[in-house]
Design a protein around this nucleic acid. Structure first.
Length: 880
RNA sequence: GCGGAGUUAGCUCAGCGGUAGAGCAUCUCGUUUACACCGAGGGGGUCAGGGGUUCGAAUCCCUUACUCCGCACCA
């Protein structure tokens, strides 16, 4: 070896150096070659001005594992990184900044404001890259994209125009979710429901020309100012006679019609009478249209009451108005009762402000024609979603989808390419018109921008240089890398993003944008609580990287990622950092003995291998198969766990210890030693390659020193299982050796001997071959079980401890017979347990239904077990 | 209300038809020359309750209870 590893594992000493080495080597950048098998994946673009949290660390680690695995497996691999302009979120950040200066965006004006957001973006745009770099993300930074880039903006405009021309984008007056805080419309998926304790107010509405009064209930009394009707069920005997008459709206004393509406009113619920506020409630809006009730907007875009609410209320905050309305109703004796009431209040997810349903002119996407093929693509397996249970959620949502509100009254985003003229003509084109094409009047551009998710929906192809359906000008990247293969993202954006990419991809490229979706769970704290700043349980991934290195964090995330939520605590990460340390130290040990560079290493001659060497290669091979299999079905936990178990508990705990006698010259010939070194190199090399996707830094740092043919492990071939390495015989015999050693250690402790006390062990093979095996490998038992001598034949003396282990009879001869009450108790318990097991097996075998109906191999297994238990019992009884 | 997931060792979870597992925690022993971020070993579970299918159920079906997550939402 040219170089040795540092004595201590200190990730900070090499992680950043290694990343720079990869980037300089161009390993993240694939070639543009249609002939080569490719693998491509696009990053879920984080907010450009954001800071990565632990959820980002998870989703990007998982992507990187797949990406590195595919790259090493020979695919021409592209991981395309980038960021999202994140309309509302980013605009809010800059608005807050302005607020600190005591001004609002309206003070600076649209152009200046947008300029400022761009400045902010430029200042922060390298942060995301820096953070992903620290995690080891092997993304192709030469292809980094931003949703407001020229190319992406062009794609956005193309799609909008095309959808408009196809009649799938339309502008209409409708009731939408309005955020009074952000002063914009938002889509249905952006509304989150929070359970809140509220009150249910029961109010009297006197019936015109009668001494009766209807009692209606509402959680929002202030909206009554906008009531334009009262509805009852048309079949309701109690109220049928009043339909067509009018009620008097309290406070404002307006006459409002009483209508019959079977859809809005459930006669079984409450009083069976409903107040109708078409301008401020979705259901009432529909009912209003059905019954020709006028719309009266009493709450404005700013959440304050309008003039239409009456002079007293004009300009009053909607919450204050509620109190005042209740006060007035009480005074007039029209408030019947107030009940405590738990209900769900819709709030804007971004700012937590209660949503105000409001009638407003917005742009929409007619979604059903897009949803149908998107449902079909998942239904017929063109796209698979893992974990599969999410498919039900996907179908449920897609089948009940409503038109998508895409216009936002914001300034930061893709401005809608629609141009209005004073004569009411609207023009939607790829190129800005100078004048109205219909009447030549001057035009002004639509002020609204598009929902951020409109542009993210195009991400898999807009980022690759797509130019429009069937265009000749599509970039080579698009030709080579589209459609992408896998999408890895959080389940929380299944509707926001994944569903929309599927719809847009199918519509505009004719292909599903990816074939596999893996949805990862939410990272929670150790107690399963959501991480939040207020709870103070947030784990910052960069802090962790600084403390224990990226590899430990990555491995912890991988080993926890089964698709469900992940409980993550510092202690857990600490635990896996011990594993990284273990790899480091095992590698140090191996490299002290290895004296051949990997590139000069001769192929291993299997015929010369010892049993334990065939065993470790067989186990490594099984692990290789397992890792590849589990990664292909996104079981990151199973894949990483298989590696953990193999490397630590098979390679380190057993194989290295078993190889030491030979490596250190206590046993065997020079040829044996050379072969042991060769096997050590083989196992280390393959293990590092297998581990590389999970812990790229430490494996690269170590592998570099092995002198491989390839310049870096990042592009070394990923191991695949080879049948020739499988060796069940070696596994069976080595398992027996391990079990015998364990038993000796066990009995030694139970009998109160110290590790320094040495014994003679009798072990008998069941045939000459096996006896010979124990004779040849006696040194393993002697070294690892700390024995004096191993006898393969002859009768053990009386008073020895007898047992049957993995089918082999053993006897441990103590220097003196030590019998304490405690030991006898153990022996008794052992016998009792064995008797119980034997009784269970014999009962089973005595049952004719079992022996006749169970498959033969199970019955045979039970018979073998019976034989072994009988033999063991007999031996154990001799210990008494 | 509809849909989904879960309930297994003190904690976090795996196993999903053939003898209950892992990691962490805990206890005991050990200064073995790769590693004390270590090694060896022990203790600890009627697999939420009830029913069914089966020769056999933690595993499949039904049911009850509780927890979590979507979606919808009744004024």
């Amino acid at each position: 070896m040219k170089e040795e590893l540092a004595t201590r594992y200190e990730p900070s000493q090499f992680e950043q150096r290694i990343y720079a080495f990869w980037e300089a080597g161009g390993y993240f950048t694939p070639v543009v070659d249609k002939e080569r098998p490719k693998f491509s994946i696009v990053i879920p673009p984080p907010n450009v001005t954001g800071r990565l949290h632990i959820g980002h660390a998870l989703v990007n680690t998982l992507q990187d594992i797949i990406v590195r695995w595919k790259r090493m497996s020979g695919f021409n691999t592209l991981w395309l990184p980038g960021t999202d302009h994140a309309g509302i979120a980013t605009q809010m950040v800059v608005e807050k900044q302005l607020a600190r200066e005591g001004i609002s965006r309206f003070d600076v004006g649209r152009d200046k404001f947008v300029e400022r957001v761009w400045q902010w973006k430029e200042q922060h745009s390298t942060e995301i890259k820096d953070q992903l770099t620290r995690l080891g993300a092997s993304a192709d930074w030469t292809r980094e994209r931003f949703t407001l880039d020229e190319g992406l903006s062009r794609a956005v405009r193309y799609v909008f125009v095309k959808l408009y021309e196809d009649g799938l984008v339309y502008r209409d007056l409708a009731i939408v979710n309005w955020c009074p805080q952000c002063r914009t419309a938002i889509s249905d998926v952006e509304v989150e429901f929070r359970e809140k304790n509220g009150k249910l107010y029961h109010i009297k509405y006197p019936v015109e020309g009668s001494d009766r009064a209807f009692i209606v209930a509402t959680t929002r009394p202030e909206t009554m100012l906008g009531d334009t009707g009262v509805a009852v069920h048309p079949e309701d005997e109690r109220y049928r006679e009043f339909i067509g008459k009018a009620a008097t709206l309290p406070i404002v004393n307006r006459q409002i019609p009483i209508v019959g509406d079977a859809i809005l009113v459930d006669p079984e619920f409450g009083t069976g009478v409903v107040k109708v506020t078409p301008s401020h409630d979705k259901n009432d809006y529909e009912a209003g249209l059905r019954n020709n009730l006028p719309q009266l907007q009493v709450i404005g875009e700013d959440g304050r009451m309008t003039a239409a609410a009456g002079a007293e209320f004009d300009g009053m905050d909607r919450n204050d108005a509620r109190k005042r309305v209740v006060e007035l109703l009480e005074q007039q004796g029209l408030l019947v009762k107030v009940e405590e009431h738990v209900h769900n209040v819709g709030v804007h997810g971004k700012c937590d402000t209660a949503i105000e349903p409001m009638v407003s002119r917005q742009w929409f996407v007619k979604i059903e024609p897009l949803a149908k093929p998107a449902i079909e693509a998942v239904r017929n397996g063109t796209i698979t979603i893992t974990p599969q249970s999410w498919e039900a959620t996907y179908f449920n949502w897609m089948e009940n989808i409503h038109d998508w509100t895409i216009s936002r009254q914001l300034w930061w985003g893709h401005r809608i390419p629609a141009f209005h003229c004073p004569n009411g003509h609207t023009t939607v084109t790829m190129h800005d018109p100078a004048t109205c094409p219909q009447c030549s009047a001057p035009v002004t551009q639509e002020t609204d921008v598009l929902d951020t998710w409109f542009s993210s929906g195009l991400w898999p192809f807009s980022t690759l240089g797509w130019q429009g359906a069937g265009s000749e000008e599509d970039a080579p990247d698009y030709e080579v890398f589209y459609p992408t293969d896998t999408l890895i993202t959080g389940f929380d954006i299944l509707f926001f993003w994944v569903a929309r990419m599927i719809m847009m991809g199918l519509r505009f490229t004719g292909k599903a944008p990816f074939s596999q979706v893996f949805l990862n769970g939410l990272v929670r704290d150790e107690q399963g609580q959501k991480m939040s700043k207020t709870k103070g349980n947030v784990i910052d991934p960069l802090d962790v990287v600084n403390e224990v290195g990226a590899d430990a964090l990555r491995f912890t995330l991988a080993v926890s990622a089964s698709g469900r939520d992940i409980p993550l605590g510092k202690s857990r990460i600490q635990g896996y950092s011990a594993f990284v340390n273990k790899i480091w130290n095992a590698s140090r040990f191996a490299m002290m003995h290895i004296d051949t560079e990997l590139r000069d290493a001769k192929p291993i001659e299997r015929d010369n291998l010892k049993t334990v060497e065939r065993w470790i290669l067989s186990r490594l091979n099984a692990t290789t198969a397992e890792v590849n299999r589990q990664l292909s079905v996104f079981r990151f936990d199973e894949a990483s766990n298989a590696l953990y178990k193999f490397f630590w508990h098979e390679f380190c705990d057993w194989y290295i210890e078993m190889a030491k006698p030979v490596l250190l010259g206590r046993h065997g010939t020079d040829e044996d030693r050379a072969l042991a070194k060769r096997v050590l190199l083989e196992v280390l090399d393959r293990s590092l390659r297998l581990l590389h996707p999970f812990m790229p830094f430490v494996t690269e740092e170590i592998w570099q020193k092995l002198g491989g043919v390839e310049p870096a492990v990042i592009i070394a071939p990923y191991p695949i299982a080879e049948e020739v390495l499988e060796d069940t015989e070696a596994e069976r015999l080595t398992d027996a050796v391990k079990a015998v050693i364990t038993t000796v250690r066990n009995v030694r402790a139970e009998r109160g001997f110290t590790p320094k006390d040495r014994f003679t062990l009798y072990v008998r093979g069941n045939n000459a071959r096996e006896s010979n095996f124990f004779r040849e490998n006696a040194y393993l038992l002697i070294e690892l079980a700390r024995l004096d001598e191993v006898a393969v034949e002859g009768e053990p003396p009386a008073g020895a401890h007898h047992d049957v282990v993995e089918g082999f009879h053993i006897s441990i001869v103590f220097p003196e017979k030590v019998v304490s009450a405690e030991q006898l108790e153990r022996v008794r318990r052992d016998i009792e347990k064995t008797q119980k097991e034997l009784a269970a097996v014999e009962a089973k075998l005595a049952d004719e239904r079992f022996t006749s109906k169970a498959p033969p191999h199970i019955v045979d297994g039970a018979r073998a077990q019976q034989a072994e238990l009988r033999a063991r019992l007999e031996k154990l009884q001799q210990n008494q």
